[in-house]
């Protein structure tokens, strides 16, 4: 199908450009930020000459574009650099600043750190998202179909309430209630699947209000559309019209808000939640990296995150243009 081919050719080339631009922005930001990476690598006791030598060797004295190109070249070979801080043996529990004094060669490859943390993040994301769907899809649809009545009220109250709760606070309250006080569930770190429950609830509480709102608005808009009522006059039941047609049409704005808003929220939420719960995923890795000025880790995570966002958006746009053929791209 020519259309799909052109779509992907065009969007993927655009997407690669965007990721490159993001990478450059982040790369530059980190280079001009205060804090000399050499001192971080070598520790506070290093002599000026040793520092200068290391800087030369690592190419840190070249102009930023040159460094960036070299970095891209490394990435092309699959080398995302080594952590400034973390040793090869770095544990998965994270949070600990291990092997700060280890010689540079012994530092862990960033890509390995990420590969180790990614499954945890994915697990948490999947659980949180599923949980949010479980609540918001039925409620959102119910609230969207009718312009009044209890589902509408419940949806409004619930989403206004949930959205007012800062996730850091929800996290701590849940730790207090479900873990510290009662001991029902484990909370800090990760040892088995039980550790994912409370963090997932926090992620879901953050996502649900947005989802409820977008679903009910999208459904309500399409229920207003003449084809819904006319379909019933044509002899199709309201149920068929709702499930086969209204939801199909509502999927388009939903996919859009998913790509534009929810994925970003989910990522941000994961970062914070992992930090609160010392959950050994990408977020914790990154936040610790920031405090330790572990530049290679930060920039790799940022590039990864924006790549994921860009490509999810391409997928989302493809799905919506496939559903609604009127859309251009």
């Amino acid at each position: 199908m020519a259309f799909a081919l052109e779509f992907f050719l065009r969007r993927i080339s655009q997407g690669v450009l965007i990721v490159l631009a993001v990478a450059f922005v982040i790369f530059t930001l980190l280079r001009i930020a205060p804090g000399d990476p050499i001192r971080i690598i070598l520790g506070p006791m290093a002599t000026p000459s040793a520092m200068e030598e290391t800087a030369e060797r690592l190419g840190l004295r070249d102009p930023i574009p040159v460094q960036f190109l070299r970095y891209l070249g490394d990435i092309a070979r699959g080398d995302f650099g080594n952590s400034f801080i973390r040793g090869k043996q770095g544990g998965t529990t994270g949070g600990s600043q291990d092997a700060a004094g280890a010689p540079p060669v012994e530092r862990a490859a960033v890509i390995e750190l990420i590969a180790r943390a990614l499954p945890y993040t994915l697990l948490l994301a999947a659980c949180g998202f599923l949980l949010a769907c479980l609540v918001s899809i039925p409620l959102g649809i119910l609230a969207g179909v009718r312009n009044s009545g209890w589902p509408q009220k419940v949806a409004l109250y619930l989403s206004s309430f949930f959205v007012s709760l800062p996730n850091v606070w929800v996290g701590i309250v849940l730790i207090y209630l479900l873990s510290a006080r009662t001991g029902w569930l484990p909370a800090i770190g990760y040892q088995h699947i039980g550790y994912v429950v409370i963090p997932a609830i926090v992620v879901a509480v953050e996502l649900a209000p947005v989802m409820i709102r977008s679903i009910s608005v999208a459904v309500a808009t399409n229920v207003q559309d003449p084809f819904y009522e006319i379909g019933q006059v044509r002899g199709l039941s309201a149920r068929i019209m709702l499930f086969r047609h209204v939801l199909r049409n509502a999927a388009v704005p939903l996919l859009n808000s998913f790509g534009a808003q929810m994925i970003g929220m989910l990522l941000g939420g994961l970062f914070v939640v992992e930090y609160i719960f010392s959950f050994p995923g990408i977020g914790l890795l990154t936040i610790n990296a920031v405090f330790q000025r572990d530049f290679p880790v930060i920039q790799t995570v940022a590039i990864f995150a924006s790549t994921v966002l860009v490509f999810i958006n391409i997928a989302v746009d493809f799905a919506s243009t496939t559903i609604d053929r009127r859309l251009k791209f």
Partner: peptide, 30 residues
């Protein structure tokens, strides 16, 4: 009875069907 023994056609045909499903398929569905 609706759509079976008694049919109705409105003034605005362009908004009468689901815009995301081919016309023929919708008639077939009915």
């Amino acid at each position: 009875l609706r759509g079976r023994e008694i049919a109705y056609i409105g003034a605005n045909p362009t908004t009468a069907l689901d815009p995301t499903v081919p016309v023929g398929h919708q008639i077939e569905e009915k």
